[in-house]
């Protein structure tokens, strides 16, 4: 699977459970779905855990990114400084370019 994003790109996490009815083993935490963050780095390309978890081959392998989010966006009641952040590993097929 070709690498689509690079460090600094703004991306939004898709919700494949809602959009495509995906069920079972998923690694994108619910709390970041629909949220927009910034690519911190490309980690490499790895087998897709959604099929690996069930004895599948994990193909096509997916680029994996670390995505940085602002805590205050994820949690409206966040009380810490607005610069506080969280970085989450998200596979490429869960990401789309953020609306400008």
């Amino acid at each position: 699977m070709a690498v689509r994003f690079t460090t600094g790109d703004r991306v939004t996490v898709r919700d494949l459970e809602a959009e495509e009815g995906l069920r079972g083993h998923m690694r994108a935490p619910v709390y970041c779905r629909g949220m927009t963050g910034e690519i911190e780095r490309l980690c490499g390309t790895f087998g897709n855990p959604e099929t690996l978890a069930y004895g599948g081959d994990g193909q096509p392998a997916q680029p994996l990114y670390r995505v940085r989010f602002q805590q205050s966006q994820l949690w409206p009641d966040y009380t810490g400084p607005t610069r506080d952040s969280i970085e989450i590993e998200v596979y490429q097929h869960w990401l789309k370019a953020a609306q400008p």
Binding site: Y78, T79, G80, I86, E89, Y91
Partner: peptide
């Protein structure tokens, strides 16, 4: 969702001038 409170429970008080950055180890790293 509330890292600063959890850190305080470990005796770690991070001033508001420093960013707290949480890393969720969700996949292959």
């Amino acid at each position: 969702r509330d890292p600063r409170s959890v850190l305080r429970e470990f005796g770690t008080d991070i001033g508001n001038g420093r960013e707290v950055r949480v890393h969720d180890s969700t996949a292959d790293m």
